[in-house]
Design a protein around this nucleic acid. Structure first.
Length: 975
RNA sequence: GGGCGCUUAACUCAGCGGCUAGAGUGCUAUCCUCACACGGUAGAAGUCACUGGUUCAAAUCCAGUAGCGCCCACCA
């Protein structure tokens, strides 16, 4: 029963109960309804590697706010959930576990077994992540949950790759990879580490042909000289101007290479100012090689020995070749010296041997414009934004999107991993007839010639058996997998069933809005636009909303290692899911970062101990709680629990506002429910309502309009603020207080109940997208006591706030005159309270108040007299034009009236006089400034007339107030 | 190195050309009054980073300076 509502809102109980109820009733399940306008959001799929962090909490809260709002607005709302297989990250986590628990490497397990292990890991963590999202209150359509590596997504990936390959958007190209010569495999960047090792810095010289001159250069890897294809100097370096365009000979291999000018590669201040260029074995040289169309000579075999390009050095180990090369150069008199130097060197995580940058064949998606008339991918994506088909909020992020695309850099999509979508390419050496015969009439196989390697590249929609061409032409499948972002790029349409034309795809695509963070605009947003346009023929979403990034109290990124992160689940436990959500919505401003100070929660007493810089990176092993003086271990990525010292969870006081707000709402509802006895539903006629009712309805109508507009413009912080301010500062602080007397009066009670119930009903609808749990709790309780309610006419209430229609009120409800009337009364009440406080007059002792004002105002105050009397505990209230300041009273001046509180025996005339003097001084200063403006001829002539008028009115007002204050002062001094 | 952003009360942030610059937290005083102490009432607290400029008018627009941060590229 309603009267049993506890004094404090218990989020935990509510969360359990309503999650189950919502799920059971299927509120979040969407069925494509042609007669209903769709609103669709696809979740940025979280990685299955670990737990959700604060960024996820923010991202998903904002999506949920939008989806819940649109759903109750009557849209056919679908929020598509799912997770990402996150190639490298997931494989690395599982490999690490296998290594730690079994001491085995992935090579010990083999590809199949490792992938099987990762699938098991994925099932476990996917369940955990989805569970966390549910705890947050995310209103996803869980029945549609997808995974970027599941069958549905795989089919889309296969189809996309096949079509892009067939259409010539996917091509094979060269790229430098990290080559592990011991394991004879390339390794991903994440699998390497850099160490400073003692190395050499050699200086050599090459003879410049036909000049007798030499050009000097330095290197840390002399053996790469065998693969040099140019020497570069800075275009504006005066020392070498005359040599640009000349040829030099590499003596050891007898190759002639040009001297080129390259401002990007060469820093004239470093070394000799000349750089040898080895495009096949150095990332910078590679870029330079592309710019100058230099030959790229690979001098290494897979095992790290020098290949046939190295001439007489062929077959030598790298290090041996280095010595030999140096020795031979010295013998030729071309060696100038060597100095010891610490050199950063990349190593492979697994073999611990040094990484060799090696040019290898990789797969790319072509971004640049094409010469065959088909659109270039980069351009189509740029057009989508410049034409406004995709709108980015805040607008400034459109610039990063366009800038990045403007480079039109090809997208390398092959990764040397085992976990992911395997590239559907088979290599075979055979005459083409073998292919045409075997695949005659098949649309699902296509092939292209790879002249460099004398082979065919065969792409197929379904896996091809190795012997499909017969035993003499075995197929070899590409071992690599696709970049994770390749499958993520298809997410908005693959999750809806593409390549099939499903009802979902037809109805919900393009989706409505994508909510994400700015660091993946280029990795993800751009690529979704490209594939959406290519596969479906339309953009994937109409709007992109980029939310801020959450940083710690010092403005640093949060990370487990630093120990400055906050676990959303801890916040839910400590403050409730609604508090977490309110906090997230509240910090979502237009700003690009938002700081969230972090605290350790004392495991003994729950006190918050703020995390300081020196606590980070596990530098502090033990902290003492300032409250209970007991010791604990600060939160962080501790590998195991400490038996001696309990570890703190991490929290933040930022969420107290949301928790308190939920409690405030709860108690406002409690108040109403305790006063609903005898409630009967009934229609309200605006014109018959008393001032206070028209006032709260006017404020409610304004708030509703504002909240709706803030949601439409993605101004989330303003949404939270508007709902909070109205509920707390207007409804609770004033209207509820004003209703107390009316509820005790038999005659006015029914109407007060109806308005209170109606306003609370609307507040719940407005609060629901942000704080669904507390809204539902109150909604259900209210439903028992006042099932039929509403504004202006009562209706049976929907069975859940989750499906309660979004409110909107006629513009006439907003009533500026009434709002002004109440504001004036509030000013009077506040002034009386201030005087009461100042003189320490107990709230239980009534004071007499006199107000000098015109007749109209006096009439107003008389109508509102009961409120003035109860809100400020006023004994007698006298008002009118003939009122004079009583002796021994304190006063207040207002633009429209003067108020006096009689303080017989309490007043300190001297203190009061000083106060009045101070006020006079302030008003005079203000008056002077205002008059100054008005005496400025150009202000009067150039400023808009209403601004000038405003200032004139202000002058009159101030003069009046000063006059009153001066009279009061005289009276105080005389009396 | 390129791009973007931030600097307003003790802290976290609103305000984006025209009120005597606001909120939440914290602080001070007071009140456990029959919705709420996760509360009420009132109060104190700001050279709007600095220097110039534009404008009748600048926290707000422009330029520069300093500090902080994010993203991207890179460190022969």
């Amino acid at each position: 029963m309603p009267t049993e509502l506890s004094k404090q809102y218990d989020p935990r109980e509510a969360q359990q109960k309503w999650l189950a109820l919502w799920d059971e009733r299927g509120y979040f399940h969407a069925r494509p309804d042609e007669n209903c306008e769709p609103f669709c959001v696809v979740i940025p799929p979280p990685n299955v590697t670990g737990a959700l962090h604060m960024g996820h909490a923010l991202n998903n809260t904002l999506q949920d706010v939008l989806v819940r709002w649109r759903r109750v607005q009557g849209y056919d709302a679908l929020w598509m959930p799912g997770t990402d297989h996150a190639g490298i990250a997931t494989q690395a986590v599982v490999e690490k576990r296998v290594r730690e628990e079994e001491g085995k490497s992935r090579h010990d397990l083999g590809r199949e077994e490792l992938v099987a292990r990762i699938w098991r890991w994925k099932d476990q963590y996917e369940a955990r992540i989805l569970g966390q999202l549910k705890q947050l209150g995310a209103s996803c359509d869980w029945a549609r949950t997808r995974f970027t590596l599941d069958e549905v997504c795989s089919r889309a990936v296969r189809q996309t790759f096949f079509a892009m390959f067939r259409d010539g958007y996917i091509f094979r190209g060269k790229r430098l990879v990290n080559w592990d010569a011991q394991l004879q495999t390339s390794v991903a960047d994440d699998e390497t580490y850099t160490e400073n090792v003692q190395g050499g810095f050699w200086t050599f010289k090459y003879p410049v042909k036909g000049t007798g001159e030499f050009i000097r250069f330095s290197t840390t890897r002399p053996e790469t000289m065998l693969g040099d294809t140019a020497v570069a100097v800075h275009p504006s370096d005066p020392r070498y101007q005359h040599l640009i365009g000349k040829l030099v000979t590499i003596p050891l291999v007898g190759r002639d290479i040009p001297i080129i000018a390259d401002g990007l590669l060469v820093d004239p201040a470093l070394g000799t100012g000349c750089v040898k260029v080895t495009p096949a074995h150095d990332p910078n040289d590679y870029a330079c090689g592309l710019r100058h169309k230099l030959p790229m000579i690979n001098i290494l075999n897979a095992d790290g020995t020098i290949n046939k390009e190295g001439g007489k050095y062929a077959g030598l180990e790298r290090s041996v070749a280095r010595d030999e090369v140096t020795k031979d150069m010295e013998a030729l008199g071309l060696f100038e010296g060597r100095e010891d130097r610490a050199i950063p060197l990349k190593f492979s995580d697994r073999s611990k041997t040094s990484i060799e940058p090696l040019l290898s064949d990789q797969w790319f998606v072509k971004m640049a414009d094409r010469d065959d008339g088909k659109p270039g991918f980069a351009q189509t994506a740029m057009d989508a934004v410049t034409s406004g088909k995709v709108k980015i909020f805040p607008e400034r992020y459109a610039k990063s999107y366009l800038d990045w695309l403007g480079e039109k850099r090809d997208w390398c999509i092959s990764r040397q991993l085992w976990w992911g979508h395997r590239i559907p390419i088979w290599y075979v050496r055979c005459p083409e007839e073998a292919l045409t015969t075997a695949f005659a009439g098949r649309q699902d196989v296509t092939w292209r010639r790879d002249e460099d390697n004398d082979q065919w590249l065969v792409c197929a929609l379904e896996d091809l058996p190795d012997d499909v061409l017969g035993p003499q032409y075995p197929l070899r499948r590409d071992p690599d997998v696709l970049d994770t972002w390749f499958s993520s790029a298809l997410w908005p349409h693959s999750t809806l069933g593409w390549p099939d034309s499903t009802p979902e795809l037809r109805h919900y695509y393009p989706t409505s809005v994508l909510v994400t963070s700015r660091d993946i605009i280029t990795l993800w947003v751009v690529r979704m636009v490209i594939t959406g346009l290519y596969n479906v023929g339309d953009v994937p979403f109409r709007h992109v909303y980029i939310h801020p990034k959450i940083l710690d109290g010092f403005g640093e990124t949060m990370s487990k290692m630093k120990g400055n992160g906050v676990d959303p689940l801890d916040i839910i436990e400590l403050y409730g899911a609604d508090a977490l959500r309110f906090g997230m919505v509240h910090l979502a401003t237009e700003n690009q970062d938002s700081k969230l100070p972090v605290s350790n929660v004392c495991p003994h007493c729950g006190a918050l101990v703020s995390v300081k810089r020196e606590h980070m990176y596990l530098r502090t092993k033990k902290l003492t709680c300032p409250e209970c003086k007991k010791a604990f271990r600060p939160g962080g990525p501790w590998p195991s629990p400490d038996p001696e010292l309990p570890t703190a969870k991490q929290g933040s006081e930022k969420f107290e506002q949301g928790r308190n707000f939920a409690n405030k709402l709860w108690n406002a509802a409690r108040f109403l429910l305790l006063n609903l006895e005898g409630y009967t539903p009934g229609a309200l006629r605006l014109e018959e309502l008393p001032t206070e009712d028209r006032w709260i309805l006017s404020r409610l109508a304004t708030t509703t309009k504002e909240v709706t507009e803030h949601l439409e413009g993605f101004h989330f912080s303003d949404v939270a603020r508007a709902v909070y301010d109205f509920t707390w500062s207007e409804f609770c602080d004033w209207y509820v207080e004003m209703s107390k007397g009316r509820l005790r009066d038999e005659a006015s009670r029914p109407q007060a109940q109806r308005v209170l119930a109606g306003v609370l009903d609307t507040i719940l609808r407005l609060v629901h997208p942000v704080m669904p749990f507390v809204a539902e709790s109150i909604w259900q309780a209210l439903g028992e006591a006042a099932f039929e309610r509403g504004l202006p006419s009562p209706e049976p209430s929907p069975e859940s706030v989750v499906i309660a229609p979004w409110p909107s009120f006629p513009a006439e409800w907003r009533d500026a005159a009434t709002e002004k009337r109440i504001a004036r009364m509030q000013d009077l009440v506040r002034a009386v309270r201030e005087i009461r406080n100042r003189y320490g007059v107990d709230t239980k002792t009534p004071v007499d108040v006199l107000v000098r004002c015109d007749d109209a105002l006096a009439g107003d105050f008389r109508r509102l007299e009961p409120f003035v009397k109860t809100l400020a505990n006023v004994g007698t209230l006298e008002c009118g034009p003939s009122v004079t300041k009583p002796p021994q009273s304190a006063g207040t001046v207002h633009p429209e009236f003067e108020g006096y509180v009689s303080l017989r025996g309490l007043i300190d005339p001297e203190a009061e006089a000083k106060r009045v003097e101070k006020q006079i001084a302030e008003k005079r200063k203000h008056l002077q400034a205002t008059q100054g403006k008005l005496s400025n001829e150009s202000f009067v002539s150039k400023a808009p007339p209403e601004v000038v008028e405003q200032q004139r009115a202000l002058v009159a007002e101030l003069q009046g107030q000063i006059q009153v204050l001066e009279e009061n002062l005289r009276e105080l001094r005389q009396g």
